[in-house]
Simulated assay, not measured.
Amino acid sequence: MEASIRTMSDVRALLKRFGAIIYTGDELGDLDLMEDELAELHHWGMIETSEYMAACMVIRQRRMELDK
């Protein structure tokens, strides 16, 4: 699958494909959980490296926005 992941909505949609809906009310905590879930999906070969890298980049960008 092509890595067309550019927004947090795209990351959430990717995770939702595997039944993972992450919302705790703590956005930074959610980002941590999303990264963990993505790492597991990648480890088990359920998502391609390009998807994993694109999603992680979006999460890192969002984390930087929140740190400002």
Rank of each mutant, 00 (worst) to 15 (best):
M1L: 09
M1P: 15
M1C: 15
E2M: 12
E2F: 03
A3N: 03
A3S: 02
S4T: 14
S4Q: 08
I5A: 11
I5L: 11
R6E: 12
R6L: 08
R6D: 09
T7K: 01
M8Y: 07
M8H: 11
M8I: 15
V11G: 00
V11I: 00
R12S: 07
R12M: 01
A13S: 12
L14M: 13
L14W: 09
L14P: 09
L15W: 05
K16C: 10
K16E: 14
K16H: 11
R17G: 01
R17T: 03
R17F: 01
F18P: 12
G19T: 05
A20L: 14
A20F: 05
A20K: 13
A20S: 10
I21F: 02
I21Y: 01
I21K: 03
Y23W: 11
Y23R: 12
Y23H: 13
G25C: 01
G25A: 03
E27H: 04
E27N: 07
E27S: 11
L28I: 14
L28E: 15
L28Q: 13
G29F: 00
D30C: 04
L31N: 12
L31Q: 10
L31F: 11
D32S: 09
M34S: 03
M34N: 07
M34K: 09
E35P: 13
D36G: 13
D36A: 15
E37G: 02
E37I: 07
E37T: 12
E37D: 01
L38P: 09
A39E: 11
A39C: 05
A39G: 01
E40M: 07
E40R: 12
E40N: 12
L41Y: 02
L41P: 00
H42T: 03
H42P: 02
H42K: 10
H43I: 02
H43N: 09
H43E: 13
W44D: 11
W44N: 08
G45Y: 03
M46E: 10
M46F: 05
M46Y: 12
I47D: 00
E48N: 01
T49L: 09
T49W: 12
T49K: 12
T49H: 10
S50P: 05
S50C: 00
S50I: 06
E51L: 06
E51Y: 01
M53L: 07
M53N: 07
A54S: 04
A54D: 01
A55Y: 06
A55I: 08
A55M: 05
A55R: 14
C56M: 15
C56S: 12
V58P: 09
I59R: 04
I59P: 04
I59S: 06
R60T: 13
R60C: 05
R60N: 15
R60S: 15
Q61T: 14
Q61R: 15
R62A: 09
R62N: 08
R62Y: 09
R63K: 07
R63W: 06
R63G: 06
M64R: 14
M64N: 14
M64Q: 14
M64I: 13
E65F: 07
E65S: 07
L66V: 00
L66G: 00
L66A: 00
D67L: 10
K68Q: 04
